[in-house]
Design a protein around this nucleic acid. Structure first.
Length: 420
RNA sequence: GCCGGUAUGGCAGAGAGGUUAAUGCCUUCGCCUGCAAAGCGAAUGUUUGGGGGUUCAAUUCCCUCUACCGGCGCCA
């Protein structure tokens, strides 16, 4: 398949380090609050990518980290007067529950930052040995001037940067922290350089090195992580042994906006996954996410979700009779997926497959997209339908219509067969 | 200021250097229906943000302008 990599800014054929295996890492959440629809978008997209690659016969190791030690966690725990660990565990559990509800089950392993402290310390030690990092009284910092390729991913000129950080012991304001010295949180660990906690960027490279080594295939995340986070990851990892590139395919998902603004925790304009699930089911949310291309900006609106729900209902309403394989429709679907994960076109192909009655394809491709395209009425609904059919046959339309009205109000789509 | 992205019918949202610019929603009409809904059939509707360039030909490539979105390093 072909994927667009931020590193090359072009669509490239996917050539993995090992032909039948794919190593994929996606930046996970910082667990200090509920996850929102912006997170859902990113994780649904990479879930579909992993499922599609597996469908093509590849063995995919999909790794995701969980940042459970961070300033935000510390601040929030202090605000709420709880232990940091209790707070991060709580939101980690909520996150995993959201993922499960959204049908995101392709992640091979979730790796917590706090369970990889030895790997982090080890990596920092090697960076110090290579003289690309230095120690001050506040922490250990990466010397960005030692890495000539800095700025390659974000295409930024890193020589004329103005830093907002005024009071710091850093040699260069652009240097980033690897280890923060001090005990101003409950989450601290001993290290050869003193008690402290890890910086943000080092978590991910320590984790990926443990599971993948110093090179792997795909690194994903939101567009907002390109700079500085992913630049820092590259600087750290490639400084360790000089191997380049650390990952060949950098995939970044576009933002989900609310009222034309990026949905984010700091702006406070986010819709939590939890809340969204009160109004829309998992299939509707996934359809909504996949109807936009993953790199395009998308807007979260009531209308957008309603549209997704109707489109999905349309597929389910027409996909009733199995009319066999539609080879052309199937090819349209896989061609779209091959082409930089073009899910909007893939969904258009799903509509074609539905109208052509290829039930097998709908089920098979539905698994890839994580969307159930088949209508399945629960027993109580079927019973109500049967009762209505009987009442209609007896021409007791007032009662039949009353039931119908209440079913529609409850959000149930009904299909009445003609009488006789 | 620097860097990156986006601009397609009423709406969402694809594609493509050259016959009718996907798909879904909405609207209108017909069929179907106990009546509706769903479904089926049909119709209306975009010339692709403005300007310039390359080309036999651009909405698709290049430049520029405008608008909007995002990033600018312990905070992201």
């Amino acid at each position: 398949m072909e994927l667009y990599s931020t590193l090359s800014r072009t669509v490239e054929p996917l050539e993995t380090l090992y032909s039948d295996r794919v190593s994929m890492f996606v930046c996970g959440p910082t667990v200090y609050d509920y996850s929102h629809l912006g997170h859902a978008r990113t994780y649904v997209i990479f879930d579909v990518l992993a499922k599609y690659l597996r469908w093509t016969g590849k063995e995919v190791f999909y790794l995701q980290n969980i940042t459970d030690v961070d300033d935000k966690v510390i601040i929030r725990a202090k605000e709420e007067g709880v232990q940091q660990q209790d707070l991060s565990r709580k939101f980690e559990t909520e996150f995993l529950r959201d993922m499960q509800t959204l049908g995101i089950d392709s992640v091979s392993h979730y790796a917590r930052a706090t369970t990889h402290i030895p790997e982090i310390i080890n990596q920092i030690g090697r960076l110090l040995n290579r003289n690309v990092a230095y120690i001050t009284e506040t922490g250990i910092y990466f010397n960005i001037d030692s890495f000539p390729r800095n700025g390659e991913l974000s295409r930024q000129d890193t020589t004329h940067r103005i830093s907002r950080v005024t009071d710091s012991t850093k040699h260069n304001p652009a240097d980033f922290v690897l280890w923060k010295l001090g005990e101003y949180g409950q989450y601290t660990w001993d290290s050869p350089w003193g008690r402290g906690r890890p910086g943000w960027h080092i978590e991910d490279t320590a984790i990926t090195e443990k599971y993948f080594g110093q090179q792997y295939d795909i690194h994903g995340g939101g567009l907002d992580l390109i700079f500085p986070h992913h630049e820092a990851e590259i600087a750290q990892m490639e400084s360790l042994d000089g191997r380049h590139p650390m990952v060949r395919y950098w995939l970044h998902t576009g933002f989900l906006t609310v009222n034309e603004e990026k949905m984010s925790k700091s702006l406070g304009n986010f819709i939590t996954i939890k809340d969204a699930l009160k109004s829309w089911d998992k299939d509707t949310i996934r359809y909504f996410i996949l109807i936009s291309h993953y790199r395009s900006p998308a807007q979260a609106t009531e209308e957008g979700f309603a549209n997704a729900k109707k489109a999905l209902e349309h597929i389910r309403a027409i996909a009733t009779e199995d009319m066999g394989e539609d080879a052309e429709g199937r090819t349209a679907f896989t061609d779209a997926m091959e082409s930089d994960l073009n899910t909007p076109v893939a969904l258009a192909a799903i509509h074609t497959l539905a109208s052509h009655g290829d039930i097998g394809a709908l089920k098979e491709f539905g698994e890839i997209l994580g969307i159930n395209f088949m209508r399945e009425n629960s027993a109580p609904i079927s019973i109500l339908q049967d009762i209505r059919t009987e009442l209609r046959a007896r021409k007791q339309f007032d009662i039949a219509d009353m039931i119908r009205e209440r079913m529609i109000k409850a959000g149930i789509t009904i299909t009445d067969p003609p009488l006789r």
